[in-house]
């Protein structure tokens, strides 16, 4: 469909969102990603039955910890969409990028004083 979305979104392929470990979400944020979103199948329609539900729980857990350590939890998000729904993916990518732009650069990057970098959003799909 070739629907345009912001180029700062880079996708890391995993077989199922059920393969996205808590440590990987932390790793991305720790390394300075301004935002991370996990894109899984629609709930109830997981290609691997229930991996996306596991992923959602993990995302919620990491969000909670982010809150506790004073980092905006919105930097991490979970989205559900069908693999055939290109328009929704593009919309999510735009939405997430906009949200992250408003939040500004990751505090971790600010600490590392590399604030000149453009926002990078990472996706696991």
């Amino acid at each position: 469909m070739r629907l345009s979305y912001p180029a700062n979104v880079k996708i890391i392929k995993v077989p199922c969102t059920g393969r996205v470990a808590i440590a990987q979400m932390f790793k991305a944020l720790e390394k300075g990603a301004d935002g991370v979103f996990v894109a899984g199948c629609l709930e109830g329609d997981c290609h691997y039955q229930s991996g996306n539900l596991r992923a959602r729980k993990r995302v919620e857990y990491v969000q909670e910890i982010l809150g506790q350590i004073g980092m905006q939890a919105e930097r991490l998000a979970m989205y559900n969409l069908s693999a055939g729904d290109g328009p929704r993916f593009a919309q999510i990518a735009r939405e997430m990028t906009e949200k992250i732009r408003q939040l500004g650069p990751s505090p971790i990057r600010t600490v590392k004083s590399r604030a000149s970098q453009k926002p990078s959003v990472e996706v696991a799909a």
Partner: peptide
Amino acid sequence: CQGCGVCVCE
């Protein structure tokens, strides 16, 4: 095994 990786993360 279907290779989804759920168990790996759990």
